[in-house]
Design a binder for these strands. Sequence first.
DNA 1: TAGATTGTTAATCGATTAACAATC
DNA 2: TAGATTGTTAATCGATTAACAATC
Lengths: 210, 210
Amino acid sequence: MKNEISIPTLKRLPSYYNIVCNALGAGEKYISSASIARVLDVDDTQVRKDIAAIGYAGKPKVGFDLIKFKVHLEEYLEFDKKRKSILIGAGNLGIALSRYQGFAKYGLSVVAIFDNDPLKIGLKIADKEVLSLEKLKETIVENNIKIAILTIPSNKAQETTDMLISLGIKAIWNFSPIALDVPSDVFVQNQDLGASFTTFVNIASIKNII
Amino acid sequence: MKNEISIPTLKRLPSYYNIVCNALGAGEKYISSASIARVLDVDDTQVRKDIAAIGYAGKPKVGFDLIKFKVHLEEYLEFDKKRKSILIGAGNLGIALSRYQGFAKYGLSVVAIFDNDPLKIGLKIADKEVLSLEKLKETIVENNIKIAILTIPSNKAQETTDMLISLGIKAIWNFSPIALDVPSDVFVQNQDLGASFTTFVNIASIKNII
DNA sequence: TAGATTGTTAATCGATTAACAATC
DNA sequence: TAGATTGTTAATCGATTAACAATC
């Protein structure tokens, strides 16, 4: 069934999860689609459709049971499934992502950090040693890694990507501001923060806010 | 005219900009909508429509003049406009964002970093001293700041937001995984990286890739 | 029960894609 | 000129929203 969900719906699910966690933390038992919609500034019909799309049901007149809904979201999004990954590029952003504890609850587990700067190799970041790129192959193969997080400069991104793919990587979370050329059986999600900032200020500008 | 552009189009513009910069770096003079489309895996009609939407025109049979297109994008996206901002939360992510040089070309200028942890106050990050939140008011007022970057824990996010808004902040780039409650004349763009990771692995999973 | 809220079908809206004329 | 590529109208597609019946 999961392969029939729409991407826009999928992207809203983590927000629902955060709202559910907050409401539970505030001691509530049920939540209505209207109150979720109000927080996210979307239509309440859409909230109900999204929830229906992941196979969860509420109670007319009552709303959605927060505990059960939370568990359903965790199962649907597979938070309990360990997503072993490697991170390439021990720069400021790479270090920040490696250290961020908050990712663990979503299943993200960074098993190793790589860099080709001799000054960085050997450093300890979040209990993990920064490894030379020469260790890529054995790490990927031994741990059967399919996911890579790319936080390296643009000019190295494509060649590094080619290497990762040749070693079996199938999904790349790309923080470099460049479009990577990959075969159709590899998925890339771009996370260009400079682009996000540009969009941010321009939307604010369109709304005549800044 | 800018207020008539669609958000999906606006979000694609930074990608066009990156592609144009790369092509220029490779010594090319012109680029076709079809080649841009191929790189981004979108429809070439859409690329032409997007470019038309920002008021730029190509030459039939030739394509788009890279230098002129680059300048047009920079002007449209107002990269030359300094976007003075403050950053709240000198954690790993806040420090990484403060240090990242790449933002400058998009106009982002972090004029001050704030934290309420006495151990962090006084630290130097990217030539800027970490200030106590008590200095917020004078910094915002003196520099006429409208933009804030929020990299603090969720449990402090709403109260900090309320304070920022009371001091005149109008646009918030929110890295905390929480929906902020703000008045209608304030714009929030959420950048929850945990949510992004969840979406990333679930799309990869839908595509039967991992 | 009455009323509030869910669940779902139908209508709308807008983004994407197809078709093709315009043009250098 | 011929052909390639842009520019633009029309068609399609799918997401969002409206309306309302179902239900606890």
